[in-house]
Each structure stands twice: as structure tokens, then as C-alpha cells.
Amino acid sequence: MARRTRKALFGTGVGFVVIMVWCLLPVAWILSLSFKSQAETNSGSPQFLPKSWTLQNYRDILHNSDFLYALRNSFGIAIIATLLSVIFATLAAYAIARLDFKGKRLVLSLALAIAMFPVVSLISPLFDMWRTFHLFNTWPGLIIPYMTFTLPLAIWTLSAFFREIPWEMEQAAQVDGATPWQAFRKVIVPLAAPGVFTAAILTFFFAWNEFALAISLTSTTAARTVPAQMSFFVGSDPFNPPYGQLATASVIVTIPIVIIVLLFQRKIVAGLTSGAVKG
């Protein structure tokens, strides 16, 4: 028995190390690349670590106004989309979790269908529509579709959280003379806040990550987000891809993700798995 436990422990330990290496190796790789000079990557630099470390890529990228604009757009668009999406999803999830109304299943099915929707098939009609409505290459032109595609996830996560909240407390509040709306605001909102927060993180990840719509519905730095801007990266050498700068940009846009993950890992895991396996 003791031997078996030790063996299992050993296996788990090995698995632990393997997972760490597998998950973090590419991150370490771009980090290392970001310290290689353009001259080094142009002449071929297959070894993992730089021959000589340089901060030049970071200096260059912080003077690259296109990248900085893209960073601004990414933050602005992702935050606004997250905010709006979470507000709409909270209302909907509350209704789904707490109220009895016709078409509840329909709403859930619609959300599911949209979660599976092939985003690329929207590019053609949306491109045409946005040109007509003058939303092409604007922030709202991205915010609106981002809301659409984050709402399903937010609605599910939130309705799962809302179901855990004790129903009696709301009733108790109503018996005490509160309207359903007041009961919602005073009792449910504070209890639901952690769930809302989790939904917001997941929504933010989506908007921060999105690429297909970002390259198709924008054309300048007025609205282009970081993932799209990175695919248009132009170095000082017109014929060689700026490896180091791309890696540096990658590192910079990964920093917010790492911070969020470090701070809220428990919440993210809870959000991703909530309700997914019940029933």
C-alpha cells in the first residue's frame, strides 16, 4: 500500500513538472525571443536563449505609435464590450435563473447556438452592413459583435451562479415589503457580484483575444486591436519579419493576461466549469 502511494505520488510529481514545462515553454520562448536583436534573428538564431541580450525591441515597440494605438483600442474595446455584455447578461441570467417566463428554453438554445456560431461566416454580411451604417473601422463596429459572442458564455456562467443563491432570501426581502426589483438589487446583486466578476473576466479574455472580426472590420489604427495589428507588423527592414518585435509585442499583450490569471485563477476555473457538468 505504501509503495503504491509513493508510486502514485511520484507519477503526480512527474505530471506536475510536465504540465508546467508544456504550458510555460512557449511563453518562455517568446520572452527569450523578445531579447534577441534584429541582427541575430536575421542571420538565424536557432538556440533558445539570446546570444547577447538586448532591450532594443522594447525601446522600439514603445516608440511604435501604431502598436500603442492598437493597445489603446484593445483595452477600450475589450473593457466597453465586457461592461455592456455583463450588464445585459446579468439581466438575462437573473430572469432565467429566477423567473418563470415563456421562451426561457428558447433563449438558452439561442445562446447555445450563438456560442457555436462560426464567426467567419459573419464577416461578409457584417462587412457590408457596417459600411452602410458607417460602423466599419469604428469601436462600436467591434464592440457590438463582441457583445454578441460573449453574451452566451456570460449568461451561462451567471445563471449557474444565480442558481446557487438562496431563493428564500429574495422572498424574505419581498415579504419585508421590497419589490422584486428591489429584492434583486439589494439581495441578489451583492450575492451575485463574485459571479458577475468571473463572467467579466471570461468576457474580457474573449474580446482581448478576438482576431477574425478585428482584421476584417477595421482598416486603420482608429479601431484596429492588438491581435490584428500584430499580423500587420512592419519592421524597419521591408523584407524580413521583425521576429524580435513581434515577440516583444506578444510579451506586452500577455502581461495583462498573466496578471489577471495570477490574481483570479480560482474564480476563472470556477467560471469555466460552473454548471458545465451538472445534471
Binding site: M20, I30, P227, S250, T254, R266
Partner: peptide, 23 residues
């Protein structure tokens, strides 16, 4: 372990593609 597993999840797909393309 939770943090290291969530980093690939959270990372931008374009960034992951670049990292592997360079690799």
C-alpha cells in the same frame, strides 16, 4: 499549477500562433 494551465487558456491565439511559428 492552476496558474500555469490558465496561461495558455488566456493567451491571445495570435500570440500562441506566433510563438509556435517561431519555434
Amino acid at each position: 499549477i492552476r496558474t500555469s494551465i490558465l496561461i495558455p487558456y488566456g493567451i491571445i491565439t495570435v500570440v500562441s500562433a506566433f510563438a509556435w511559428q517561431f519555434a
